[in-house]
Amino acid sequence: MSWDKTLLKQAGEIIELYPQKRSALGPLLHLAQSKDGYISDDSISVISELLGITEVQVKSVSTFYSMYKQEPTGKYLISVCKSISCEINNSTEVIDKVQEFTGLNNNETDEDGLFSFEAVECIGACGGAPAMQVNYETVEGINAENVFSLCSWLKESAPEVIVADEMQENFGGIKSFDWAIQDNTGATSTAPGFQTLKTSKVKK
């Protein structure tokens, strides 16, 4: 097995939470994603052994969900919403801009492993349309201009932790609702599921 002790211990704790082992499959896939930035065949083998199911059963589940990536993702996964509220508020312009900046088509990752881009379905930020996420941290009220600045900032300052408040303040616009509560907790990888498992990082 090629998961290290810490990861295996964490996996064990997750499995404990559920009345039936197999329920841990989703969270373990998030864990795998946090390790490699995608669901590697190796992780699939590890998980299949941990849960006592076949590898293809793991694969079957992991490919059903769009957040488990089958290919390595970049450091920053940019997901721009294209569902109805965003669509009618010109999300296509935002999408075009990101594509122009990164040179990426939908569901592609650049060669440096910096950016991955995807146009996604509703991310629950319709009031702040158009909206997007970077590593699943939301920015609302963006437009073609400020998304360009956002991408440039990501590229230039390469932050280790992506904090929604920070992005919103510097690049966002109208919001779905008043966020009020100050929050410095953010994402360190493309696996948000990993972070709820008590290992979230705080930006100093």
């Binding site: 082992k21 998030h30 059903f64 509703c122 709820t196």
Partner: peptide
């Protein structure tokens, strides 16, 4: 428990399947 990107899991029985791994 975190989902992983599938609207259909809002449908309650799909959600239960998802929760069962």
């Amino acid at each position: 428990h975190l989902g992983a990107g599938a609207y259909i899991c809002g449908e309650e029985t799909a959600l239960l399947n998802s929760l069962e791994g």
